[in-house]
Design a protein around this nucleic acid. Structure first.
Lengths: 116, 116
DNA sequence: TTTCTATGCATCACAAATCTATGTATTAAA
DNA sequence: TTTAATACATAGATTTGTGATGCATAGAAA
């Protein structure tokens, strides 16, 4: 990805989020979707994507299905029922985190004055 | 910290941010400040903090000074001039990242409809 | 007086997540 | 025919933070 370190921990949530909008997606499609939706800012690497997808599947949050397009294989992923619940929780958690960090690095008017 | 994975890459920016509000801080003080300012959500561990501070110093973004309080040692850190510049950049970058992720996991009205 | 808690620094072994690099293969365009 | 895009996958290296541990001072509680 572009920012490397900062993305840690957000990838699976992003994947789940994308799958919650689309009935099914395959890996490459997912990277393109995220790339497009982020204005080319988040470029998911294959070396990150596939392990992440495999882990989500191993955890029972998604299922996959191979589809042949001519001779080329595609592996479509979709959310399971537990996966849908996990998605909501995961997004909630990420959002809370973002809020926390934002508040922390907020620009203060002048200098910060700690509470007495 | 509380969320472990999500914090990756944000720690040094948080430290720099705190130092930009206070002329100088020592390690323990910093953890308490962040704990307080985050509503007990971000608890910086010693195993994260001190290596991070040492790295910032090695990179020339902060300088430190030992101060004895009775027999007890404190090591105060403050921003260098390059550190001040780096702080601005670092915060800018983090903020951009937060915005990008937020937009990506935004709750859509109904289902997302990709642009044609 | 002893013991617990807080203060205060530090380092090491480990785990988790992602990246880089690499590999294989199909397909379409130049 | 060569390049770029599509499409999957894995191995090894790197980064970052955590947990555990160690050492020591200081104040409060018991």
């Amino acid at each position: 990805m572009t920012n490397t370190e900062l993305l840690k921990g957000t990838l699976s949530t992003i994947i789940l989020r994308m799958l919650s909008e689309h009935p099914r997606l395959y890996g490459y499609e997912l990277t393109q979707l995220v790339k497009e939706r982020s204005g080319d800012k988040i470029l998911i690497k294959e070396g990150s994507l596939y392990p992440a997808l495999h882990k989500l599947e191993a955890d029972g949050l998604v299922t996959s299905e191979e589809v042949y397009i001519g001779k080329r294989v595609r592996r479509y992923y979709k959310l399971t029922e537990p996966g849908k619940k996990a998605t909501l929780l995961s997004i909630e958690e990420l959002r809370g985190f973002l809020k926390t960090i934002e508040d922390l690095i907020l620009p203060f008017p002048g200098n910060y004055v700690p509470a007495k």
